[in-house]
Amino acid sequence: MLKFTEDHEWLRIEGDVATVGITVYAAEQLGDLVFVELPEIGATLEKGGEAATVESVKAASDVYSPLDGEVVEVNQAIVDDPSLVNSDPAGAGWFFKLKLADSSAADALMDEAAYTAMIG
């Protein structure tokens, strides 16, 4: 199941674990990334709370947690090479995996059609 947030994150949900990344639209808006900071494995995140930081040449931006949960895996590859987020945001540029506190909470998020409509 693929879901989206108003903060331009995508979630691929398998069972009670969501893989989280930023959308193609977000990656384009941010421009070439030069730095990524990811949450610690084991960290408990709250929906809407700061989860990661991405920086372009010009500015730093926060990536928010799309749902409540615990970080169970992070993508070290994007820390080592932030340009992966620009080149493949929906794939190799994923950020972290979240074990959802309540996997039914994902139902309220947008599907791809709703997200596409939102960004126009």
């Binding site: 421009g31 070439d32 030069v34 372009s56 040449v57 010009k58």
Partner: peptide, 9 residues
């Protein structure tokens, strides 16, 4: 602020 090339390039 930037053109399609982007700040880095």
């Amino acid at each position: 602020i930037q053109y399609p090339m982007g700040v880095m390039k």
